[in-house]
C-alpha cells in the first residue's frame, strides 16, 4: 500500500472530498474504486508507514540508548547533499565485536563476508525536480529531528513530516531562509 500512496498525488481529506464531488457523478459505476483511490490519496498526505528493511536496524538502540550522534553514521550530513547511509564496513567497526551472536548481526556479517552492500529501503525521498542539500541546513543549526522526527525513539524509522513544498516553505519563511524557486528546484 505504501507504494500505491507514494505514486498518487498527495491531497488533504478536504481536497479529496471536493475532487470526489466533482468527478464521481459521471463515473457512478466506478465510484467505489474512486472512493478507495481518494482515500489512499488522502492517506498519502500524512505520515507514511515505515518501509520494511532487509535488516531490522533499531535506531532507538543506537541513537537512543547508546546516544550515538546522528552524524557518526550519517557522515555526509554536514558537508554534502546526501546525509549518506553508512557502508557495511562502517557497521562492522563496532559489530565485528559487539553482539556478534545476534541473528540480525549475522545477516550483516553475511554481507561483510560476501562483499555485498545492504539494500536498505529508502524512507525519505524528495521528488526528482527538487534539490535538497543537507549541509546548509546543518550549518544553520537545524536539528535532525526537526524534519526526521524523534528518530532516537523509533524502532523502525518512518517519515513523520509531509516534506511537501508548503512544508519546506513554511520553515524557510519562519527562519528568513531563501524563498527563491531556484534554491530548491533544479
Amino acid at each position: 500500500m505504501q507504494y500505491l500512496t507514494a505514486l498518487l498525488p498527495r491531497v488533504t481529506l478536504k481536497q479529496a472530498l471536493i475532487l470526489g464531488g466533482a468527478t464521481a457523478p459521471p463515473l457512478v459505476g466506478g465510484a467505489g474504486v474512486l472512493a478507495i483511490l481518494l482515500y489512499l490519496m488522502a492517506a498519502g498526505g500524512t505520515a507514511t508507514p515505515a518501509p520494511e528493511q532487509p535488516i531490522a536496524f533499531d535506531h532507538s538502540v543506537h541513537a537512543g540508548d547508546a546516544a550515538i550522534p546522528c552524524e557518526f553514521c550519517h557522515r555526509g550530513v554536514g558537508t554534502q547533499a546526501a546525509a549518506t547511509v553508512p557502508s557495511v564496513e562502517q557497521c562492522m567497526f563496532c559489530h565485528s565485536v559487539v553482539k556478534t551472536d545476534s541473528p540480525q548481526i549475522q545477516l550483516l556479517q553475511a554481507h561483510w563476508d560476501t562483499n555485498t552492500p545492504v539494500n536498505w529501503a529508502r524512507v525519505h525521498r524528495v521528488p526528482d525536480h527538487v534539490r535538497f542539500v543537507h549541509a546548509p541546513h546543518i550549518q544553520a543549526g537545524v536539528a535532525c529531528e526537526t524534519c526526521h522526527g524523534d528518530v532516537a525513539s523509533m524502532e523502525e524509522v518512518k517519515q513523520v513530516r509531509s516534506l511537501a513544498m508548503g512544508d519546506c516553505q513554511g520553515c524557510h519563511r519562519e527562519n528568513s531562509a531563501s524563498l527563491d524557486c531556484a534554491t530548491c528546484h533544479k
Partner: peptide
Amino acid sequence: CIQRINRVQVTAKT
C-alpha cells in the same frame, strides 16, 4: 548552469 552556481554557493557557505 544554475546547478553549478548553487553548488559553489553551498560550498562557500559551508
